[in-house]
Design a protein around this nucleic acid. Structure first.
Lengths: 194, 194
DNA sequence: CCTAGAATACCTACCGTTCGGTATAGGCAT
DNA sequence: ATGCCTATACCGAACGGTAGGTATTCTAGG
């Protein structure tokens, strides 16, 4: 039951936004009453947190794992991008809700958790960028721009998928990274043919 | 006075989101009364539209103009990206408000206007992408990925500026485009040294 | 076997507060 | 007289959350 309420809430949060969705709307759509919702979740905010906490923690852990266990920084980058795209693919409603919150103001009670996730995600990408320069793949002077570009491409791909019905085929990160690397690569790496 | 109310609203909308900001909060922060706000703006939504309509229309017109009047597609691309960055630079609160709406659900009364702007922006970028392939600069098979990458880089740069106090120096689009082009270029163009 | 109590899952009705918006009277400067 | 603004009070609807209750199942103790 709690799962049913949660998935209904995710859908409504995604459709109209967290603040514009009332508890009354959620319970009506879920076919239960308000006390039932409060039986399972401490508050509206508790409900939103339940939607976000485990999935975001799992994603962060997946990224850490990839970073730790993948020796090749290019492959690590591709896998980390793919993990994030997969996160949105597996539950688009949740993804839309998270996307809106990540890119909006951090004034809600969910701010702390989202800020932490953003920070971890950025650290992870920066770490990969560092490894790419250490491996002589990306020009050191271009590292920040490269990391920014990777982040941008992830955002644009995700937005296209969530709101414009564009596909997120599994090979997408690889192809995008390949082209990006060609643009930001060291002369040596470019000439080595990868 | 209406400008003062509007800029106060922009700040609050940016800080906490449109739906989570009440009219009472706006008038208190602006130091006026509710009837004054309604004297100048038809409604809360009318206030938000006033914040968005003219600026977004002006930006869209600027982009159309650049597209029309700049013969070199690379320069056109750089200028269009710069115009969008400048839009966010000139009023970060307004920019944050818009950013949150662009990445969130389109269920509010502002949806139509934002949808139209997104559409125009996408069309403009697609047009530039087409010109770049026609000019033999970008590989036709990579056109969509290139356009997506440009959009992503714009988003990431803007996000970094709006929320992480990172600079948006005027030369940024040029440098980013230069690296991107190297990654997505045709063989002929790459070998011509640009 | 029966019963009382605990645990779990749900409900109706209600609470105080706030929401966007409106009406009215009036003050002040030009 | 007009435009700009205030102050006050109000409207109906809705907000997130709560109080008190019922129904069902299970379990332990007599």
């Amino acid at each position: 039951m709690s799962r049913h309420i949660a998935s209904t809430a995710a859908r409504l949060f995604a459709e109209r936004g967290y603040d514009a969705t009332s508890v009354r709307e959620i319970v009506e759509a879920a076919g239960v009453t308000k006390p039932t919702l409060y039986y399972y979740f401490r508050s509206k905010e508790g409900l939103a947190q339940a939607l976000l906490t485990d999935p975001l923690n799992a994603l962060a852990e997946t990224m850490r794992q990839i970073e730790r266990e993948t020796a090749n920084p290019v492959v690590a980058l591709e896998r980390i991008l793919e993990a994030q795209l997969e996160f949105f693919r597996e539950d688009p409603d949740r993804g839309r809700f998270i996307f809106a919150m990540i890119f909006g103001p951090l004034a809600t009670g969910l701010a702390h958790m989202l800020a932490r996730f953003k920070c971890e995600s950025n650290d992870c990408m920066s770490g990969i960028g560092k490894r790419l320069t250490e491996a002589g793949i990306v020009e050191p002077s271009k590292r920040d721009a490269f990391v920014l570009s990777c982040r941008g491409i992830l955002m644009a791909s995700t937005l296209a998928y969530l709101y414009h019905d564009q596909e997120l085929e599994p090979g997408l990160p690889n192809r995008l990274v390949e082209n990006l690397l060609r643009g930001f690569a060291t002369r040596e790496w470019a000439e080595s043919g990868s």
